[in-house]
Design a protein around this nucleic acid. Structure first.
Length: 770
RNA sequence: GCCGAGGUGGCGGAAUGGCAGACGCGUAGGUCUCAAAAACCUAUGAGGCCUUAAACCUCGUGAGGGUUCGACUCCCUCUCUCGGCACCA
């Protein structure tokens, strides 16, 4: 037995080295004709290593890439690291090391892990977003935005954690339950939670609001384009809907109200101008009241009155906390009869309530009489890209007392991020770079006078908004992306990633692509025509996360069971878009499957002869099923049918197995278990290296149907018996009906009953209705 | 509150109008062994019938109703779970 033990450690390493040496996964990017850009969202190195959830996702992508490569296409499958940004920086701070050093170490380990899993990445085209060769072009992108008038600076309210002394991204502010923390005040005292309590993801401290000067990208200008573009891309409706809701387009009108005893007017946005006849007050947003974030509606009368343009009634104007600032005009018309929120407010403050039916004619009347005009509003806000942090790409702008904001000339890029020791955020409203004169003290590129550099860095989502453009051109120094290569390889053929990026990353990448398209730098305007959202891995029923302490490190499984067993196991857990639960017990079953396969190939007497009918039939069925499942990312059922095939072959083992059958089986296994399949292909079947360049097996439809068919016999829809007949006979209603009636068990049910109707589905079933 | 996805054996899951539970895990019994592990074989939704076995029957896909010759699958109502958004006028 020992001589056929599968030594996964030795065999996997051997083939990984040979694949790399012989450039199996490195397509010639300038030549390839039939090409396929297969992309998995790059990870951010915010931990020492990747966890099993990454293994599930990256393997899912790799399996597809291998499958497509075996269809004869040149597959470009790159990988990199989203290494700038708050996640990586926070991790560095937590372990008390400089992010420059941490990222070097963690990305190295990530690479080792991905290599050990046997992923077919093109290691000659990796990107690391914190590398100056990369962020130089992130800064270039900022300049393009600036030139196009799509970057601007303005005062904005941002989230601030008084304990971490830093500004937080919106996605790092959450409810205490989401953070898994008890809410604390700035002094670290636990305080009672209210429905509005929003805390810092990391420490659970209640976030404060601060007003700071911030850089924005004008994504709102592309709101309609982003919405319309969704129509032509092949994404799941769930993800499209999330983007649609985020963009939040609503049609309505802006209506003007004159203010009593004044020349001023107040303008409100409404989607219901047909209810103007029931308006009784005007509610305006008030930052101070709004920031108290109470669920109870509160307000204060301003003492002023607006005039209803229809009836001339006086409408009191109230400052309230329930009108969102920054949306529409920040003012709404109060219509208690048709809006629950207005009703709640009107009741509390004893405002008038007028019951009148909505009148669709008002849309036209308001416009005709010039009380207002049609207007479309969006929920989408401009993209805040400033971060008062250290670990990001410096924003390439210079502030000159004479010339205002001046862009750093393109040829002076990159603006290097200095390696400093005081990189921790201080919470002063400025980033750590503001403490470094040698960084910010510069001369104005325009007038030559003394000027100061911007000391904020860019949001990490800017880094990841264009990285897919860089991969094929990663070795080009003169441009962010080469024109010819980009034309050949983009857009991405399949983008594989987590649904948690449904809005942010995927929206930003689409926006940036559309901007570059409008600047005539790209000839497509959607970066990911096909996106597949995989599920998130669960461990023992709960989401895998560092804070819950249930993160699984794949390394121990690779060393104990081997990459192929682990790959097969995670792919077998369930369909790719589900959330599989990682349990240790199941992986041993997969180890058994691998051992049985190995034994089958080693013990079989391989012949050149034709396979038996039964085996040929099963093989063709399996090839068809696996091929179809691959395109639908239903790897679990693909593997199940390979198992069935193996079970059939084991039953036939005493007979000799034909080489053609074994070759097909090896090919079907190749995407899932690349090392095992290669070893079998080259060493046992004597085929030329490499199986991963071989052609995917074809199936013959004529061999899928067997000679006989089982017909189901039902009485009143209940299964009563079966009938095994020849293919030909199975389509003849009269024959089947006669044979069925002779069946003892069927006859029993038909006895003493008249047959009302006979339903016959050719080749499948017959149903007697009695 | 709104939107979306979902509820199938002891467990992961399969079947998308036609044999419910493929495939795997687990469990039980067996073979091998001094013994154990491993490996292999057999059984495995619940219940009934039966000396035993085969065969057969009833029930069964969150609950209730409907459409259909036939429903896990389609429609309606309810319920629970998970995910996203959340005073957006």
């Amino acid at each position: 037995m020992d001589n056929i033990k599968y030594d996964h450690a030795k065999i996997e390493k051997k083939w990984q080295d040979r694949w790399e040496k012989e450039n199996i996964y490195f397509p010639d990017l300038s030549q390839a004709k039939e090409h396929f850009y297969n992309l998995w969202m790059f990870p951010y190195p915010s931990a020492e290593g990747l966890h099993a959830g990454h293994t599930f996702a990256s393997t899912g992508s790799d399996v597809f890439g291998r499958f497509i490569r075996m269809q004869g296409k040149a597959v470009f499958q790159p990988i990199g690291y989203d290494s700038f940004g708050i996640h990586s920086e926070n991790y560095a701070i937590k372990i008390g090391e400089n992010p420059n050093e941490v990222v070097k170490r963690t990305t190295k380990h990530y690479e080792e892990q991905m290599r050990s899993l046997g992923h077919g990445y093109d290691w000659r085209h990796t990107v690391t977003t914190s590398d100056p060769d990369y962020y130089r072009w992130t800064q270039w992108l900022f300049l393009k935005m600036w030139e196009a008038g799509l970057a601007y600076k303005k005062l904005a309210t941002v989230n601030f954690c008084p304990s971490c002394k830093t500004v937080l991204a919106d996605e790092q502010v959450m409810t205490p339950a989401q953070a898994g923390k008890e809410p604390k005040d700035a002094n670290g005292e636990v305080v009672p939670e209210t429905p509005e309590t929003k805390v810092c993801e990391r420490c659970g401290t209640i976030v404060e609001k601060k007003d700071l000067d911030q850089w924005f990208f004008r994504i709102t200008k592309y709101a309609d384009d982003l919405l319309e573009g969704l129509e032509k891309i092949d994404w799941s409706s769930r993800v499209k809907l999330a983007q649609k809701n985020w963009i939040g387009k609503s049609h309505g009108m802006l209506i003007k109200f004159k203010i009593e005893n004044s020349d001023d007017e107040i303008e409100v946005f409404t989607t219901r101008p047909d209810t103007l006849n029931a308006v009784t007050f005007i509610a305006i947003s008030d930052e101070a009241l709004y920031n108290r974030e109470s669920t109870e509606k509160i307000g204060e009368p301003t003492g002023k009155y607006a005039i209803d343009p229809l009836s001339g009634r006086k409408l009191p104007i109230w400052k309230t906390n329930y009108v969102a600032p920054g949306y529409g005009t920040g003012a709404v018309m109060g219509v208690p009869a048709h809006d629950e929120r207005d009703m709640e407010f009107a009741k509390k403050y004893h405002l008038d309530i007028v019951q009148k039916d909505p009148d669709q004619k008002l849309w036209k009347e308001i416009e005709d009489k010039k009380f207002g005009y049609p207007h479309t509003n969006f929920h989408l806000r401009d993209w805040l890209v400033s971060r008062q942090r250290y670990w990001g790409a410096p924003i390439p702008m210079i502030n000159c007392p004479k010339c205002d904001w001046v862009a750093v000339p393109e040829k002076e890029l990159p603006v290097l991020l200095p390696n400093i020791s005081d990189y921790k955020p201080e919470g002063t409203g400025k980033g750590p770079l503001a403490n470094h004169k040698e960084f910010y003290q510069v001369t104005c590129p325009k007038c030559g006078g003394d000027a100061t550099r911007e000391t904020d860095v860019m949001d990490t989502f800017v880094d990841s908004s264009w990285y897919f453009l860089r991969y094929p051109s990663s070795n080009i120094e003169s441009a962010p992306f080469d024109k010819e290569i980009t034309k050949r390889w983009l857009p991405v053929d399949l983008y594989f990633g987590g649904a948690e990026h449904s809005v942010l990353h995927l929206m930003y990448a689409r926006f940036v692509t559309k901007v570059l398209h409008d600047l005539k730098l790209l000839d497509f305007d959607e970066p990911f025509p096909k996106f597949f959202a995989h599920g998130l891995m669960i461990k023992d029923g709960v989401k895998m996360s560092k804070s819950k302490g249930n993160v699984i490190n794949p390394d121990q499984y690779v060393s104990k069971f081997g990459a192929d067993t682990l790959r097969l196991y995670v792919m077998f857990l369930g369909p790719m878009d589900a959330s599989p639960d990682f349990r240790d017990s199941g992986i041993e079953g997969m180890q058994r499957f691998v051992a049985r396969l190995w034994k089958l190939f080693n013990e079989a007497s391989i012949t050149d002869g034709q396979p038996s009918k039964e085996v040929a039939h099963k093989l063709n069925q399996t090839v068809k099923k696996v091929t179809e499942d691959m395109y639908n990312f239903k790897y679990n059922t693909a593997i199940a049918s390979i198992m069935e095939l193996m079970n059939t072959l084991e039953d036939n083992k005493t007979r000799n197995l034909s080489a053609s059958i074994l070759k097909s089986l090896a090919l079907l296994l190749a995407p899932f278990a690349p090392h095992l399949a290669e070893e079998i292909w080259v060493k046992i079947l004597g085929q030329p290296f490499s199986i991963h360049k071989a052609n995917w097996p074809k199936y013959d439809n004529s061999l899928i149907g067997s000679d006989t068919v089982t017909i189901i016999i039902q009485v009143n829809g209940k299964l009563r018996s079966h009938l095994v007949v020849s293919n030909k006979q199975s389509t003849k209603k009269e024959d089947i009906e006669t044979l069925s009636k002779k069946d003892e068990n069927v006859a029993k049910w038909l006895k003493n009953h008249g047959i009302k109707k006979v339903i016959f589905v050719s080749g499948k079933l017959i149903n007697f209705v009695i």
